[in-house]
């Protein structure tokens, strides 16, 4: 497994990763794999002990991952690591980061240099995300990151 860090948090490898239904029974587990159809709100009771939430793209076109990540950060104020895996493209790197994802399990053959380039592609954004930001010029535009 090759991990690519999007830059907000250091990625850590966890021994055991369970699904949402298994989380209740395994009280010492600190990492969970959310199904694409799972509502992140279901993680509420476990937030204190969770260090990692893995979100899985069944296919890169399935954009629910972005909303799941955002709800984790914005509604649940989850401060651990969020990781994306599955069928994901480097073209999505900045979108993922801006929705609160910290790391990606690189698909086979995926070139980290492409991922790196996508992260610094755009100098500004036209809407707020979960990242800290400062206005640039007048209007909606912001510069993101710390």
């Amino acid at each position: 497994m090759r991990l690519f860090e999007l830059g907000e948090r250091i990625a850590k490898v966890h021994e055991s990763l369970v699904t949402l239904p298994e989380l209740a029974e395994n009280t010492d587990v600190r990492a969970v794999l959310l199904d694409i159809a799972d509502d992140p709100a279901a993680l509420k009771p476990y937030l204190n002990r969770l260090e990692l939430v893995v979100l899985r793209f069944p296919i890169f076109r399935d954009g629910r991952v972005f909303t799941q990540a955002r709800e984790l950060r914005e509604y649940l104020r989850f401060s651990g690591e969020i990781r994306a895996e599955g069928h994901v493209l480097p073209d999505q790197a900045a979108f993922l980061k801006r929705c609160g994802v910290d790391s990606v399990v690189l698909p086979d053959g995926s070139d980290p240099a492409l991922w790196e380039r996508q992260l610094s592609r755009f100098p500004v954004a036209y809407q707020r995300s979960v990242l800290p930001s400062r206005p640039v010029g007048a209007g909606l535009r912001v510069e993101e990151g710390t």
Binding site: F60, R61, D62, G63, F66, T67, R70, Q92, A94, F95, L96, R98, C99, F122, A125, Y126, Q127, S129, L140
Partner: peptide, 10 residues
């Protein structure tokens, strides 16, 4: 606002 919206592009 909608241009390259991180959450709503897929």
């Amino acid at each position: 606002w909608s241009t390259l919206h991180p959450e709503f592009t897929f």
